[in-house]
Write a protein that binds this DNA or RNA. Structure first.
Lengths: 162, 162
DNA sequence: ATCGTTGCAAACGGTTTGCAATTCG
DNA sequence: CGAATTGCAAACCGTTTGCAACGAT
């Protein structure tokens, strides 16, 4: 799934690196792919496929839903983007250009995403993997809860069958 | 989403605790709910809704798909079960009766799930949350990679657009 | 010109829901 | 008895796919 794990060279121009990668795999550098990467770069936050489609899909030169999904998968596979999955299964993406690795706290009420990172945790999880003979490729460390604002507002509510 | 977080009292009979909870919420203790809880207790591993339906759904006294999903959600909401989400979005559940908290390493090739736990990581993530004013409810710490067996077999393969 | 790519719409797969029939308390 | 629950099938919703038209190299 992940081809490029150490993407430090990405400090150079993202578009250049992207077209390099495409070329190296005999893939084509199309307007749609450039626009989606661009969208991700400008966003500087997590965006869903639907958001991208909403914003780029209805214009003079539009693009289709399928292309958004295909391109996001391409970007993730290539290590250019990072997907997080909400508790309900929906996914959102962020680009990885010259951003250090980090994990997420996700508010279950308002969906705010707070980034955190802790090198000690990283080290500990690596050694846990090593002990188990497990070869880690990537990980997902997400804390679900309530952000400062939402925690102040309401207590957790009950829910029965329906 | 989570109602009961400290479930240490679950060292007593799970069925008793379950019907207690149901009663306290004016919910009914039906055959289907008991069977599904029972299935989870016997399984002692992660099972999907589909597996439960496959095994319990086609018998003299069967139960429907919808009931499986409704009951799993009920169990998760009540803190009796724990859901993990695979990279592709599918979910699987395990019961939480008298099992200490743990996280998972998931093999991307064969889907084997290895449990791990590290109290230091837990502490560090709690303080990370506290610093951000975030009230943690639960978390998901999953390391994706390849288990000992699969790591030995094959290198990671490439993939393009289709 | 060639082959990857796109867009559409239909298919998909897991999950949820509306509703009438059933069951628990 | 009455409210909660079930089972069914249809609806949902995000995502994927088949295919003919298109476009990058």
């Amino acid at each position: 799934m992940i081809l490029i794990l150490n993407i430090n060279y990405m400090r150079t121009d993202p578009h250049a690196v992207f077209s390099q990668l495409l070329e190296s795999r005999d893939l084509k550098c199309t307007r749609q792919r450039r626009e989606i990467l661009d969208y991700l770069l400008r966003a500087e936050k997590h965006v869903t496929a639907e958001e991208i489609y909403r914003d780029l899909g209805r214009r003079d030169s539009a693009l289709g839903r399928a292309t958004v999904f295909r391109t996001l998968r391409l970007l993730e596979d290539a290590g250019f983007a990072n997907g997080i999955t909400f508790a309900d299964g929906r996914k959102a993406y962020e680009h990885k250009f010259s951003r250090p690795h980090h994990d997420h706290m996700i508010c279950v009420d308002c969906r705010e995403v707070i980034e955190f990172s802790n090198p000690v945790i990283e080290r500990l999880q690596d050694s846990a993997a090593r002990e188990a003979g497990f070869e880690p490729l990537w990980h997902r460390h997400e804390i679900f809860g309530r952000c400062r604002k939402c925690a102040r507002r309401a207590p957790v509510r009950k829910r029965g069958n329906k």
